[in-house]
Simulated assay, not measured.
Amino acid sequence: MTNNNPYNLVPLQPTGRNEEDNVNTYSPDDMITIYEQQFLTQVPEDKLTEFLPALKAFYDIDDNTLDISAVIFDAIADFCIIYNHKVKVGDYQILGNLVEEQIEVDEDNADDENSDSQAYTIDCMRTFFINDVELPYHFNVFIQGEGYSTLTERDTLLEKIYWFVNAGFDEHLLGNPEDVVSLESINEELASLGIREMDLTTIYELVDYVEDSIIDDDMVDALNKLIDDAE
């Protein structure tokens, strides 16, 4: 940390100047870095009003450059910023083989096109990153017809966060107190990984992002191929 760079911003090399020759321009990757730092840099409350002008002065940019950075950032679908945490979805792994599950079909619905009695389950894992820290997320996929659902394990930090949001009041009330996950215990584990603490809003946004990201088109194609081969 120096007087010229009190926020430890990453020095970047501009690619040139804009048409008016009054501010710098940067490569798309560097513009994303600038945009990330706008949200990820920890700034004391009494310095908040000074931070954005300092960031723009350090890179010699203007509001328009930041706006362009935001457009580029939003166009990249595989990662996002959630309340001062950089969250990124990584690769998936199919950990086991398809397991056939026979589903009983009600006679009244036997002729229904959606009453497929054949179903499968399979163990999978998706990797996520929070501020570049790798976090695994194990889950079981239940597949029936064109639909699927997932059931998450309860071992890794991300899995505990999921169940903290989704387990409901009864489990927290009736479960073994030593097994109950709290916001405090989540933040203790985050701190042990060098990740800043999260509030409830961040936790809920994180779980929404994870649920939206665990199965993508590539994984669907891989699962469909396994089902086709099994049939």
Rank of each mutant, 00 (worst) to 15 (best):
Tyr209Pro: 05
Val43Lys: 14
Asp208Gly: 04
Asn109Tyr: 14
His85Val: 01
Ile34Met: 01
Asp123Met: 14
Leu48Ile: 15
Val165Pro: 00
Glu36Val: 03
Lys86Asn: 05
Met219Trp: 04
Glu159Cys: 04
Ala75Gly: 15
Arg126Trp: 08
Phe139Cys: 08
Gly145Val: 13
Ala75Pro: 02
Thr49Asn: 15
Thr33Cys: 02
Asn18Ser: 03
Phe128Ala: 10
Thr33Gly: 00
Leu9Ala: 01
Gln13Glu: 10
Tyr7Gln: 03
Glu211Lys: 12
Ile82Trp: 04
Met31Ala: 04
Val43Met: 11
Val89Asp: 00
Leu98Asn: 09
Asn4Ser: 11
Ser69His: 00
Gln93Gly: 11
Leu223Val: 08
Leu190Trp: 02
Asp29Ile: 05
Glu153Phe: 09
Val71Gly: 02
Val180His: 03
Ser213Tyr: 01
Leu52Met: 14
Glu104Arg: 12
Gln118Val: 10
His172Ser: 11
Ile195Ala: 04
Gln42Tyr: 15
Lys47Met: 15
Lys160Asp: 00
Ala70Ser: 13
Glu20Thr: 11
Ile122His: 14
Leu40Trp: 06
His172Met: 11
Val23Arg: 09
Ser213Lys: 02
Met31Phe: 05
Val180Thr: 08
Val141Glu: 06
Asp155Met: 07
Val105Thr: 08
Ile103Glu: 00
Asn24Gln: 06
Ala191Val: 08
Glu188Phe: 01
Thr41Glu: 04
Asp218Lys: 13
Thr15Phe: 01
Ala167Tyr: 06
Ala75Leu: 09
Tyr148Ser: 12
Asp67Glu: 13
Gly175Met: 02
Leu157Ile: 08
Asp78Pro: 00
Pro53Glu: 12
Ile161Val: 05
Ser182Ile: 07
Ala119Asp: 02
Ala222Leu: 06
Glu159Trp: 07
Asp111Tyr: 03
Ala77Gly: 05
Pro14His: 05
Ile34Ala: 00
Leu55Lys: 06
Thr201Arg: 15
Asn84Met: 13
Met219Asn: 04
Gly194Asn: 11
Lys160Gln: 03
Ala77Ile: 01
Asn176Asp: 13
Asn114Lys: 14
Asn109Ala: 11
Asp217Ala: 10
Asn114Thr: 12
Ala230Leu: 05
Phe79Gly: 00
Val220Ser: 08
Asp123Leu: 13
Val89Ile: 09
Asp116Tyr: 07
